[in-house]
Design a protein around this nucleic acid. Structure first.
Lengths: 207, 207
DNA sequence: CTTGAATATGAGTAAACATTCGGTTTTTGT
DNA sequence: ACAAAAACCGAATGTTTACTCATATTCAAG
């Protein structure tokens, strides 16, 4: 491993032509597949390049380091999650609290269902790659939005501290969605899981 | 790295004399410290030996591989958690459901408080290592015990499926304890956290 | 005190791995 | 068709790291 400290942090080149874009996508897809199916241990640059069907040299034309690939993977995952969260929140903000809650839990659950194995790997296998903070940051941002919403609902609220309530609510939903995802066979259907989780949060937040 | 596949899985020697025992303890303590303070990346065998104040050769007298050290660390952590769980469960089984719940949550929380950094590291940085299954296995075992208990409380229960309820309850408690642990400053005191988490579980399980 | 077993040592080995670089092929614009 | 740019290639490099082994030291029992 050449000194990580001096590794360039910016890509060597931007992919301009269509085939270069395809190369980048293939590399990211290969990384996601390896991470999801074989774990972080198996995620070596050579392995990624091989699976992507490109040479190791090409990999380093577009990613300055192995960490940069993972970073991009995390970034995309977070962006997708944030996008869905914002979309559903806005689209459902006029609904009642229970309906909104259900919509949010469902959205969260479905966003993880797109690629359960990858979701798990990103959450569980990424050894403190600095970038993983972005996932925590996403949750923190959600917490703030929820806290603001709860403040507007204060009269109806069972709890008195919206910020704290949002913290527990978000972590609760995240953890139970991931847990349900891990073992979907032993438990009920996805819809049932969403219902149950929604129920738990609602009972906590509202009378 | 010598071929992992053919690495011996049993220790070379059992530590018989007192100084050998001390060496083993020093190695485990060093491993825990490095893992908690610097993360898995920094957990190299040479680093462990250095911090333990013994030579790398001594390390390999008592542990057949790096993975074996981590395995022992996880084993001890799980054993401690299981011990505390069983003890508190037996000692409190005659209490009312809310009191029992609070005792269990408190015990869980306190067991993580012994060494928060290590608890986090074992939970968040280790899923790459196969052995982490032991931690999941511990949770699964707890779930079974709780499910059995809930079955005896069925008439009082709000939910109808003890097994599923136990699953959500255990994961909920675990996740929220870890989350509270991560950011104890922003939230209330440990007692308040335990109370809140207990409250959430109780509202879910009982009317 | 002697002797054998247990313990400790640390330079050395080999393999894995991230990253580089010199050179080739393909595409684009003219 | 022809240059220039972009993309691609993969053997080679240098470092990291898990693990070994030949040797030295300490302990315990007779």
């Amino acid at each position: 491993m050449a000194s990580l400290g001096t590794t360039a942090k910016t890509p060597r080149k931007k992919p301009l032509q269509a085939r270069a874009q395809a190369t980048v996508e293939a590399l990211l897809e290969a990384s996601a597949h390896i991470l999801a199916s074989a774990g972080y241990e198996a995620l070596t640059t050579n392995h990624v390049a091989e699976r992507a069907g490109v040479s190791i040299g090409s990999l380093y034309q577009y990613f300055p380091s192995k960490e940069a690939i993972i970073g991009e993977l995390v970034d995309r995952h977070c962006d997708e999650m944030n996008r869905l969260f914002a979309e559903v929140f806005l689209a459902s903000s006029h609904l009642s609290a229970p309906q909104l809650a259900r919509a949010m839990v469902s959205a969260f659950y479905r966003s993880k269902c797109r690629n359960p194995a990858l979701s798990r790997a990103l959450r569980e296998q990424l050894p403190r790659v600095k970038r993983l903070n972005r996932l925590e940051a996403s949750l923190d941002q959600m917490t703030e939005v929820i806290a603001a919403y709860l403040t507007t609902q204060r009269p109806l609220l069972r709890v008195e501290t919206p910020k704290q309530a949002a913290f527990y609510a978000v972590h609760l939903v995240e953890a139970l969605c991931m847990a349900s995802l891990r073992d979907p066979s032993a438990l009920a259907s996805p819809e049932a899981a969403v219902n149950e989780i929604t129920d738990i949060v609602m009972r906590y937040l509202f009378p």
